[in-house]
Simulated scan of single mutants.
Amino acid sequence: MSAVIISGKELATEKRTFIKEQVTKLRQFDAVQPTLAVVLVGDDPASHSYVKAKKKACEEAGINCLLEHYPSTLTQEELLSRIDYFNRNEEIHGILVQLPLPKHIHENSIIEAISPEKDVDGFHPINIGKMMINQDSFIPCTPYGILEMIRSLNVSITGKHVIVVGRSNIVGKPVGQLFLKEDATITYCHSKTKNLSDITRQADILIVAVGRANLISSSYVKEGAIVIDVGVNRLESGKLCGDVQFDSVKEKASYITPVPGGVGPMTITMLLQNTLQSAQKKASQNKTNIL
């Protein structure tokens, strides 16, 4: 029996409708317009595509998106100056600097310069640290989207063996922590892991985020596992594919995400959710100050 396909596109549409309703309420009753500042440096085609999708999603949800595009010659000092302006501007609730940045700009310095209260990407060390110890924080968007996809299936996460293939700071590490918080048992695998297929076959939930086309075949997957494919790879033919061999694995898994149309739409949706959350906090602070 073939796996049920988890449509991130459909789930994202449903969640964005709810976000739009909340944005409307915030504007009507609290006079707060959720606003996201997006900075794009250089002319990387993939970055342009991602930013375009984020701006469109913001506009559809009623979130104001301030997009600033700079040439790759922008200095680190100039970028830090813009971030400082956004940090101080009380009308801006979220700041997103599209990665990767030109080589002369130190990404960690830029991430750390963004106010944790406006870090809607969830990359700031303070937000990551708070997430690790279960304090209120912005959750990185892709891991957040993956958790929401699993929750939508109405399956218990408690006690499940979640295996994460990949250990990036953006996806691999934080997604494991999110599922640990949900009382799952977590195993991390990476490029130095020996006998990878022997380990991944133990997964009740297998999350693959390494950026290697078609790495995971059906021989890596336990019968009935839930498979989440985070990878987006472009083949020589121009076709997009994930890290998982979709056609073969879907015959063995119980649920599987497609590429495209799986995790990607949920990542942008959780960016909208984080921006909304930041604006809601601002509205709550305004009420407190009035009182």
Rank of each mutant, 00 (worst) to 15 (best):
46 A>W: 06
7 S>L: 06
108 N>I: 05
271 L>F: 03
234 R>W: 00
237 S>A: 03
176 G>V: 07
120 V>S: 05
217 S>F: 00
26 L>N: 09
240 L>C: 09
39 V>Q: 07
72 S>C: 11
250 K>H: 08
49 S>M: 11
108 N>K: 12
151 R>Q: 12
79 L>K: 01
39 V>F: 10
43 D>N: 14
286 N>V: 02
10 E>V: 15
107 E>R: 11
216 I>T: 10
219 S>Q: 15
76 Q>N: 11
93 H>G: 03
267 T>N: 07
152 S>D: 11
83 I>S: 01
197 S>V: 09
272 L>Y: 07
250 K>D: 09
193 T>C: 02
52 K>E: 05
49 S>Q: 14
122 G>H: 07
258 P>K: 06
95 I>V: 15
289 N>K: 15
208 V>D: 04
235 L>Q: 13
123 F>D: 03
252 K>A: 00
199 I>F: 01
134 N>G: 12
5 I>V: 14
16 R>I: 10
197 S>L: 13
193 T>Q: 02
156 S>I: 07
168 S>P: 07
69 H>A: 15
206 L>Y: 04
280 Q>I: 08
273 Q>M: 08
71 P>W: 05
200 T>A: 01
47 S>N: 12
85 Y>C: 11
75 T>L: 10
120 V>A: 10
282 K>R: 14
28 Q>K: 15
88 R>C: 10
288 T>N: 11
239 K>G: 01
134 N>I: 00
15 K>T: 11
6 I>M: 12
165 V>N: 02
143 P>W: 06
180 L>Y: 11
266 M>V: 08
179 F>Y: 07
11 L>C: 08
137 S>H: 03
197 S>H: 12
241 C>L: 00
